[in-house]
Design a protein around this nucleic acid. Sequence first.
DNA 1: GATGAATGAGTTTTCATTCAT
DNA 2: CATGAATGAAAACTCATTCAT
Lengths: 195, 195, 195, 195
Amino acid sequence: MSSFKERKIAKKKEEILRSAAAIFAEKGYHGTTMEEVAARLLMTKGSMYYYFKNKDDLLFHCHQMIMEKSIGQMEEILNSPLTWTEKLTNAIKAHVQLATSEKSMFMVMDKPNQHFTDEYLQEILASRTKYAQYFDRILLEGIRLKEFQNVDVKMVRMIILGALNWIQEWYRPEGEKSSEEISNAFSAYLLKILL
Amino acid sequence: MSSFKERKIAKKKEEILRSAAAIFAEKGYHGTTMEEVAARLLMTKGSMYYYFKNKDDLLFHCHQMIMEKSIGQMEEILNSPLTWTEKLTNAIKAHVQLATSEKSMFMVMDKPNQHFTDEYLQEILASRTKYAQYFDRILLEGIRLKEFQNVDVKMVRMIILGALNWIQEWYRPEGEKSSEEISNAFSAYLLKILL
Amino acid sequence: MSSFKERKIAKKKEEILRSAAAIFAEKGYHGTTMEEVAARLLMTKGSMYYYFKNKDDLLFHCHQMIMEKSIGQMEEILNSPLTWTEKLTNAIKAHVQLATSEKSMFMVMDKPNQHFTDEYLQEILASRTKYAQYFDRILLEGIRLKEFQNVDVKMVRMIILGALNWIQEWYRPEGEKSSEEISNAFSAYLLKILL
Amino acid sequence: MSSFKERKIAKKKEEILRSAAAIFAEKGYHGTTMEEVAARLLMTKGSMYYYFKNKDDLLFHCHQMIMEKSIGQMEEILNSPLTWTEKLTNAIKAHVQLATSEKSMFMVMDKPNQHFTDEYLQEILASRTKYAQYFDRILLEGIRLKEFQNVDVKMVRMIILGALNWIQEWYRPEGEKSSEEISNAFSAYLLKILL
DNA sequence: GATGAATGAGTTTTCATTCAT
DNA sequence: CATGAATGAAAACTCATTCAT
């Protein structure tokens, strides 16, 4: 159980993370200075280092936050009493919702091996693999139960994830399509590959 | 007509570009120093500045080289006497072939607005729009002639381009799938959205 | 007469000093952070500032503690009813004992003018001079009374102090020679210069 | 054979080293900024990094320069056709001469394990051991040939090296004793331990 | 055309110190 | 008395870029 203090710190950390992600997304990781991140929060550089030991650390926790949410959503869906078709639909919709509502965080997450080494990288890669495998599982089970056609699972998963990971690059909150519409369109069209 | 000298210079430039792209792809643009690029070519930093006036210039010409090829391929396909279904199939295959054979260059090309401003950026964005519009045209014409189902063109184009642009992130020349197999799978599956 | 409270504080201060000296000795003054010193004592940085107003203050009191002991020992020896030969022998032995038992503190004490300015430095330098002069007095008196040969006092004092101040650099409590053996050897050999 | 260019670079490096050592000696390693070292040479910080990759590197090369000279001198002495008594005398005199003429460099050399780790440290420690062993050899051989009394070699070597290593702390070029006088006094007095 | 030396602006990071609670 | 959070000044180091030779 977390104390009041811990909560307060956690809140602050998330605030920093969000602010950092927004700037990273705009200017790129290297194009962003710690100074800027701090300034936008009306903090000093020094204070930021009280909460995060590194610039890398900042980036890593952006990854982690999203990965936890993504995987959490996915596990909820997998544990639900739905058909595999419905599960895939929901997984796609959930991803779209997250990618659009956390656009900055998602943008920040690409090319992890350019930014990380060792443990951090291992952890990130492990999470990604896990996420990919959840998709594979849906595809595989759907195929086994004849809900889906017999496709090359890896290829189809790559198509799906590619389409989903591209969203954050073009989505604009003020754009003509709402995230709701996008998630409907994406799930409907991508399902056509399998049905 | 280009003189011998110009040819030689062009050759050298492409050599530099290729080397630079390979390192950019591995370590990221900012993670790469001019020193490294030069060293890998057994040149000195100074010499590189004879061929490219900037680090940005290096990156820009990576973009340009690929964009020219991509658009060239696309125009050839559009000008060919094929059905729209065949054209889309070929466009997808051509993209896959290029993305796999020029993996490094493709990797280097994302998030141009993080690296460029003004003219360079305008040019890059214009090329991208042009490329996207060629896809749209295929989709639109295919729909008009009833080869394709009546889909939301923008959404489907985003799915297709997303899937294609994700390839360079996971493709490995030594991987289990050849670029040939990938291009077959991708064109087949993506077409299912439209048929 | 000191109250219970004062005693308790004095105790705590010495505890802090000892801990600080140990880390200073290992990592150097600049290489040691207040954080580390505090952490090793299971305190927080903030608390330390209750006891010592400065990092410099910490270092200064390390000096002071040793200097007081050294000079105290020396004065006791000088006031004792011994021959000058015996006094020199005892002075050397006492120094060796202190340098080995308080190795860390001694290590911390070199190059005071790199760490201090003004008053602190004056005080330290004064103590050192005093200590050196005690040695000189022993030598001078010993020579006057023909116990020692007629040597260049300053040179011989420098040899003696040099040899003694080098001990803390190589002495290891678990080493082959006990501090007892070292003090015997040092006093015996150094006396040979004078006899 | 070294080219003109190499010579020029070597000269520059030594110039930097000397300047750095002087400031290190005065203010301590940590108390000295790269800026200062550069400024005193009318260079910019950046240029210094062209010649030395590190602040550590600077310090290391100070060590190396002196260690090479010290060991070189020592080997010359050992290879000369002198008695062991004369060799020890010369070794002491040579050390005094170097310690006084290169006072700054010598001052910079203490407590290497506070500044270095790994390879650098290994190398430094190896050189020091080598130097110490040369002294031991002189003592041992002198004893074997009955030139010297039968002393505890390690203890006597520690006394000698301690006395010698203390010189740089108190020697002043403008002081009352010339380095010549010091070297005569030190060799004469220290020899008394052995004769 | 090539090169090596120099530069300087910029960035991350560290830490002693303070102070409200 | 103790503490955790904040600060700001300083320092090491990096690198794209230039330019005389």
